[in-house]
Amino acid sequence: MILHTVSRSPFSSFALSDCVKQLGDDDLVLLLNDAVIASAANTDIQGKLLQLHESKRLFVLKPDVDARAIEAKCGKLIDYSEFVALTVQCKSQLSWF
């Protein structure tokens, strides 16, 4: 199980779309920094994000959502301690920029 962390907005980078193409069946995705915008905006990969949300594999860092004054429409909002717990739970981590 890999924790994929995405930090760039889907409007400024292909990191998120490239990430979802490479996901394994049990991999998790964490949106942080500007990538949290994808949890609130309509994007071309919204369907895939909703699938990840429904399978409880999409996480969104709440402090980054709050800092951007947006409302996440998909993904489980987590704090920093839950972020650390995800890194411990997963075998490895892959960052997408």
Rank of each mutant, 00 (worst) to 15 (best):
P63D: 08
S9M: 03
A15H: 00
T87F: 13
I37V: 15
C90G: 05
E82L: 09
D26Y: 08
F59N: 07
L31R: 05
V65F: 06
K62Q: 05
K62L: 10
A69V: 05
G47D: 12
H53K: 12
K48I: 10
D26R: 10
D34R: 04
S9T: 11
H4Q: 04
T43F: 05
R8A: 13
R57L: 04
C19T: 02
T87P: 05
L32K: 06
L61A: 15
L23W: 06
K56S: 15
F83P: 06
D26H: 05
L16R: 00
Y80N: 15
A67W: 11
A67S: 04
Q46S: 07
C74H: 03
K62E: 06
L52F: 04
Q89I: 02
L3W: 00
G47L: 12
V65L: 14
T43E: 11
A69P: 05
F83I: 09
Q46L: 14
A85E: 12
V6E: 02
L94S: 04
Q51T: 11
A72E: 02
K76V: 15
E82K: 10
L77K: 13
F59D: 02
K48D: 14
F83T: 15
S81C: 11
R57C: 02
A40P: 12
K48Q: 08
G24S: 06
A35F: 00
L86E: 12
V88S: 11
D18R: 10
T5H: 12
A41H: 13
R68P: 01
V6K: 00
I2A: 08
P63K: 01
V65M: 08
P63G: 02
Q51V: 15
L30H: 01
V6L: 05
H4G: 00
A85C: 07
K76R: 14
I70A: 08
D26C: 10
F83Q: 09
Q93Y: 10
R57P: 07
D27G: 14
V36C: 04
L28V: 13
K21A: 09
L16E: 02
L58E: 03
D44L: 12
S95E: 01
I70F: 03
F97T: 03
Q22A: 14
S13I: 00
L52T: 08
C19F: 03
A41F: 11
C90A: 14
I45E: 02
T87G: 11
D79C: 08
S95P: 15
Q51R: 07
N33T: 12
S55P: 07
T43C: 15
V29G: 06
A38I: 10
G75N: 10
S13E: 00
L77P: 10
S17L: 03
N42K: 11
L50G: 09
T5I: 12
S12T: 15
K73I: 06
L31P: 03
L50C: 15
V6Q: 01
R68Y: 14
L31G: 01
L52I: 13
C90L: 06
V84C: 14
N33E: 08
F14Q: 09
D34W: 00
A40V: 08
